Amino acid sequence: MLSYQHAYHAGNAADVHKHALLAVALDYMGRKPKPMTYMETHAGRALYDLGGPEAAKTGEAAAGIRKMESWFPEDHPYAQALDAARQLGGPEAYPGSPIVAATHLRDTDRLILAEKHPQEVAALRQAISWAEIHAADGPQLALSLTPPEPRRGMMLIDPSYEVKTEWTAIPELVAKVRRKWPVGVILLWYPLLASGAHQPLAERLAAMEGDAVLSEVRFPPARPGHGMVGSGLWAANAPWGWDDAARALEARFAAL
């Protein structure tokens, strides 16, 4: 959706949940010498300024990464991505998922990013010049490029869900991608909403056949009246150890 700007939400509690587990998955996959493909359907701008007016307006980063960064030791894959972002953009920089991915990909790997917003596309190209960046509809691109080459790899599906049809369209996209790319690791993020609007999507994912695990966390609203009260990350063909990492992170959130 062209009106959505993740700069207002970067570094929030949902980003911490999503990006920490994304980093864990990529770190493990990168330990094997075989090359891989990493794809994103909703890439955003890759690098965000937590010192900017957008983050200050919502207070979501203050309730997220500002509070939670101490959970991750320096050698944690997520901490490595945080450090990489600050080397690129200064001490107030925060990595979007493309930077998290780029931190852990190797020269032999392929990075494919889709984004529709022209300003976000321009920022992507500036931050990660070597990536394959498409100013295109992410779901359509995902279907056209799967199975990718190299076939080993991962796809992150991370829409804003501001378009109501995404709640039903995204599970259908996942099902189609899995049929075309059965060996691919697929990570799908969704918000947990006080309204319960996420429930049909979660139920559809739970009914899918095949190897998949789910991580859900809950957290206090970032501000009065904020509707997001948690984060869900569903993983098909999750790498070894991902489930254990998810349970450990869930325990951290449960203690908030």
Results as ranks from 00 to 15, higher is better:
residue 41 T to S: 12
residue 52 G to H: 08
residue 185 V to Q: 08
residue 236 A to S: 12
residue 22 L to D: 04
residue 102 A to Q: 13
residue 210 G to N: 14
residue 86 R to Y: 11
residue 16 V to Q: 06
residue 10 A to E: 05
residue 14 A to R: 04
residue 89 G to I: 06
residue 133 I to L: 06
residue 136 A to T: 12
residue 153 G to T: 14
residue 102 A to E: 13
residue 70 S to C: 12
residue 238 A to V: 05
residue 79 A to C: 11
residue 21 L to E: 05
residue 122 A to T: 10
residue 239 P to Y: 11
residue 171 P to A: 03
residue 255 A to D: 07
residue 242 W to R: 08
residue 231 S to H: 04
residue 28 Y to T: 15
residue 94 Y to D: 02
residue 200 P to A: 07
residue 188 L to G: 10
residue 164 K to T: 09
residue 2 L to D: 03
residue 56 A to Q: 14
residue 189 W to I: 05
residue 95 P to H: 07
residue 94 Y to H: 05
residue 238 A to S: 06
residue 27 D to M: 01
residue 59 G to F: 04
residue 55 A to V: 03
residue 46 A to S: 10
residue 170 I to N: 00
residue 32 K to D: 06
residue 254 A to Q: 15
residue 155 M to P: 05
residue 126 Q to P: 02
residue 92 E to L: 10
residue 12 N to I: 01
residue 256 L to R: 13
residue 235 A to Q: 00
residue 128 I to A: 04
residue 41 T to M: 10
residue 232 G to T: 02
residue 173 L to R: 08
residue 195 S to D: 12
residue 193 L to K: 06
residue 32 K to P: 01
residue 202 A to G: 15
residue 92 E to Y: 09
residue 60 E to S: 05
residue 28 Y to I: 12
residue 151 R to I: 14
residue 149 E to W: 15
residue 179 R to F: 02
residue 131 A to D: 00
residue 167 W to L: 09
residue 40 E to C: 05
residue 79 A to Y: 11
residue 109 D to K: 12
residue 8 Y to N: 01
residue 9 H to C: 08
residue 222 A to N: 10
residue 220 P to W: 12
residue 45 R to N: 08
residue 184 G to S: 10
